[in-house]
Amino acid sequence: MNEKIQTSKIYFDSVIVGLTLILAVGFIISFMLGKYPIAPAELFSILASNVLPIDQTWTDQQAVILYHVRMPRIILSVLVGCCLSAAGAAYQGIFRNPLVSSDIVGASSGAAFGAALAILMAIGNLGISILAFVFSIGAVMAVGFLSKKVKTNPVLGLVLAGIMVGSLFNSATSFLKLVADPNEQLPAITYWLMGSFSGAKLEDIRLAIIPMAAGLIPLFLLRWKINILTMGDDEARTMGVDTKKTRAIIIVAATLVTAASIAVSGMIGWIGLVIPHLSRMLVGSDYRRLMPVSMLMGASFLLIVDNVSRLTTTSEIPIGILTSFIGAPFFFYLISREGEKF
């Protein structure tokens, strides 16, 4: 792509407008799609009836489906897509490594273990969120600490530490499945680990929205600082950035949104790796542009993939499986095409 075009303000504004339009259109269309179709006129009547006195032309069943089945699911997939992509972009910058995502730095497997533990202990949805976050941040800190032991090749060190900590937590999760009650808890843990929005409830949104907002806002506001942190601690400090504090805030924020996402949707892989790369191809490496583009693109991507997941088959495919099926080959395509940039 022509580099001059990539940094021009008009180009960036058009990308943002385009992605927002895709998201808005996708958002509205998603309400109409499903086993019980809702026509556009009915959709707008149902929504408008909240504020306007309109005669009921729809069935009660349609309203229930709209508010209690589709709405939570659509909102949640948008939020989770936004969060996982933003977190992936942030981790890549903080760890100065384009191959990083919440899966690699241990955030996902830590959160998965925490959530599985919470299901096992039957301590409710809030418990799932809290334990997911606690173990997620623990895993990230362990990976950060261990990766420093490989002094010669930091990129390799991080990936190796991530694989190690990840497999440790995955085994621990397997152990939990082993001791779980095979009739109730085991299917719940297993299905949840596959990642799905099929059971999304309004309550899930209420539970996730606060930690998500608390994480997304600093990631957005500090996005310029992430650029400087990618130059390494020494250089960043001499340019006036309090590296310890800034890095800590960004890691906690990224882990918070990852854990909040995983707590409500289960394991949804690859999106945090693929979306920031796609965004980078579109608008370059500067996080001032990369962060908002990743957020918007991730939201649209997961919304669309979730629609595919719930529409294509009668017994729907968990979305975590779909994102891997799409993400892994796509990522291979990316590195083989853009190989020299890594």
Binding site: T7, R96, P98, T230, M231, M239
Partner: peptide, 24 residues
């Protein structure tokens, strides 16, 4: 660096000390 920044972006980085905490 780990990511391919534009030359102007590299130079802009050093203006960080002059601007607010949450600004670019």
């Amino acid at each position: 660096p780990a990511f391919n920044y534009k030359v102007i972006e590299i130079v802009l980085m050093s203006t960080t000390a002059q601007i607010g905490n949450f600004k670019g």
